[in-house]
Nucleic acid binder design. Structure first.
Lengths: 244, 244
DNA sequence: GTGATAATAGCTGTCAGACAACTCAAGCGT
DNA sequence: ACGCTTGAGTTGTCTGACAGCTATTATCAC
């Protein structure tokens, strides 16, 4: 039996995240002491601390030894690249209305690049390609191509709906837990300009991303062209004990 | 007395990081069980687990309940943007030789943008500007502007040497612990093309970054123009309990 | 009064030992 | 050959306590 249920510290972290999202505790505010919080969340201090550490590393919280735990200031950081998955969430967090245009899918033989990234075997190199233009308040802002291994998808199933992550989880039984994104600048060519309704030569941010499930197996490769003018891409960078 | 000594879990994390860097444990390999590791590191299991969780969130380790802790595969991820500070480290981790050209500094009155980012008061809005062309194996790859509040720098001290982070720590007594970077695409104009020895219109990645010390006070604003062709910018993205 | 110094309350960090939950593989029976 | 049970090994969680840090308050010398 394979369960893959998440540890309870995960649920605790999620609950606290909800508090922060809903403003139960305001930026700059101090959280109750750990023992009280643990009681309130019906868990132990150990588990609570695991969750708090997670949120701290995500930049949502800040802890000071001997003083307390505080809610971080910038609400902006929520749209940070190191956290969020999916264009839908990105757009929604800017308080704009996400939508999809020009969605189409087809099957094809994976290219060498994609076969490598998705770790496909020679006898299993068919991928389902989903191409979409994503909109915010009906304005096109992202063009995306998603590649899912054919072998992961049950026969007849097709990626519909906003979120391909939900499709992977609910239909394919694969939950994406982390991804590796490669960022580079780009320019709109003729086709891209038409799709995104901008002029040729407009600045874009290109994201090549590989998403992995709990077993660290790649389940999705996606390439996204983001309109630079529409987003503010934030990355939280942390000291990693460089020494020297 | 203000100490700000880091918790011992920090030192433990650093030690394990060194093991990974030096290949004491290879990618894919399983680490010894936590009780053994804790003994070996002369700490408790609780503290060890804090450190492991940190490394896990950085993508260096992976843990599976009931199975073990494993070293993550891709050595590439080490040059990930969410971790590393400073161009010097970035270049060094690509096994290239970092250098500096065209370094110059001056003082100036901070612009509105910079005054806002560094949270400067009206009577304290002088900044020291450090401009540099950074090279990898003598090839120019980054042009950077660093802005440090004048009030942080002891009289007469000047930012020399490779790392401005070390200058801030050793000379100004401010240790940078995290930064917020804004990424956007850019093009080389005439001046930039000359500095970086590329043609006008070359694709660049522009990083605007604000760095904070332990007290979450901004101590450095920097703007970096990276040659897109010279780097592979990787971001590790994590599921953050989005639900819905 | 006033400024330095010491006590104190409140909090996070760390400790020890135990048990629960999970995964995988070996052994067993059918 | 197949499914089930058992067990060893590992991470996850629990309890209760104490150590260490920080900011505030109280104390004392002057």
């Amino acid at each position: 039996m394979v369960t893959h249920s998440r540890p309870s510290s995960y649920a605790v972290a999620m609950e606290v995240r909800r508090w922060l999202r809903e403003g139960t505790y305001q930026p700059g505010e101090q959280l109750p002491p750990e023992p009280a919080l643990a009681t309130q969340l019906n868990t132990s201090r150990v588990t609570l601390r695991e969750a708090l550490r997670e949120l701290q590393q995500e930049g949502l919280l800040q802890r000071r030894h001997g003083v307390g735990t505080f809610v971080s200031e910038p609400g902006r950081m929520k749209e940070s690249l190191h956290l969020n998955f999916g264009v839908t969430h990105l757009i929604r967090q800017m308080n704009r209305d996400p939508g999809t245009k020009e969605a189409s899918y087809h099957e094809e033989k994976a290219s060498d690049l994609i076969r490598e990234h998705l770790e496909l075997e020679d006898d299993d190199d068919t991928v389902i390609v989903l191409e979409r233009v994503r909109t915010a308040d009906n304005q096109p802002v992202v063009y995306s191509q998603d590649y899912v291994p054919r072998s992961l998808v049950p026969n007849g199933a097709l990626p519909v709906g906003e979120s391909i992550y939900r499709f992977l989880r609910d239909v394919c039984g694969r939950t994406v837990v982390f991804g590796e994104a490669h960022v580079k600048p780009g320019l709109a060519d003729k086709r891209m300009a038409k799709l995104l309704d901008v002029r040729v030569g407009e600045l874009l941010l290109v994201l090549d991303q590989i998403d992995f499930d709990e077993r660290s197996q790649p389940v999705l490769f996606s390439r996204e062209w983001h309109l630079a003018s529409a987003f503010d891409f934030v990355i939280l960078r942390r000291d990693a004990g460089l020494e020297s």
